[in-house]
Write a protein that binds this DNA or RNA. Structure first.
Lengths: 153, 153
DNA sequence: GCCATGAGTTCCGAAACGGAACTAACTTGG
DNA sequence: CCAAGTTAGTTCCGTTTCGGAACTCATGGC
């Protein structure tokens, strides 16, 4: 299996990772969720090589996660914004944050908290079944294809 | 920034990715969630080089995501099982699956569905605020440190 | 003894990455 | 008008990691 083959795998985990599964892409998207849009701002934040950053932004644009928009014509300058497809990755990001804060803590830094932008209410993000509100737990869940064989995950 | 520095970053996204952010680790964990436990089974499923697989399993064991258990003494044989810390990554995996099924679809394969193992009820996993049941959406959420500066994400 | 099984390790060429400098297209300050 | 600054990249080169295949080691079965 090569990395470039992942995008055509039937497994959705593989297809997801073909877009965001390399070492830096999710950190670029973290900066986008923080509001950064320009090459140099993201570069200053991440400190990966400009070479790699340029490549990642190009890929994210080509997969439709970011869009490149001109914000100045003379000189021509571009910025990167999350598309709907990109914003839809927020639950992945938040789930990862929750996991890391619990199981991979960092001493000396107060924990992350999520708030409603309008009411300022504290939020406690949790993955549940929409109908029953029961939390999703790997030991109580079985994954299968809609029709056909009962192949797990 | 180097990959090996991520684990000590204050940012929880960086710390999470220091464990699961490389190109193959989440695919190894997908196989673990599917029930695979043995080296050769995971190798047959993933088809990455044995070299890389051995390295990833070692790292996952050292970070406490998997545990290596002996299941045969003569010859000595080991298998890898998810720990609680590993099972806690299930929401990340499920969020990624939901995203990929929606935005990175694969023709000709029926979509994934999640069911309750006991009642067999269809589940619709969604990230919500535990109190209000309101879905978590990047445009309506602000991330900040608990006390101190209001630095986003 | 000979082959099979399971869990790796070793070796080498290819691809990706890190660091630093360089380019291009302007704008601003003197 | 010229020099310096800003922004968004690109190029070059040495190091690290990866892919593919073969090899090791312990043991069990025929």
């Amino acid at each position: 299996m090569r990395w470039s083959d992942l995008e055509n795998e039937p497994c959705p985990v593989a297809r997801g990772l073909s877009v965001v599964g390399d070492r830096w892409t999710l950190l670029v998207l973290r900066d986008c969720f923080r509001g950064l849009r320009r090459f140099d701002d993201i570069h200053a934040s991440l400190k990966i090589t400009r070479h790699v950053l340029a490549d990642r932004l190009k890929r994210l644009e080509s997969t439709g996660v970011l869009e490149r928009q001109q914000y100045s014509t003379a000189p021509p300058r571009f910025e990167y914004r999350l598309t709907e497809k990109g914003r839809a990755l927020y639950p992945v990001m938040v789930s990862l944050i929750q996991w890391a804060e619990t199981y991979q803590p960092h001493d000396g830094t107060p924990p992350y908290r999520f708030h409603d932008r309008e009411t300022n209410a504290l939020l406690d993000p949790v993955l549940v079944d929409r109908g029953s509100q029961v939390p999703i737990d790997s030991r109580h869940v079985r994954a299968a294809r809609a029709q056909g064989a009962d192949k797990p995950l």
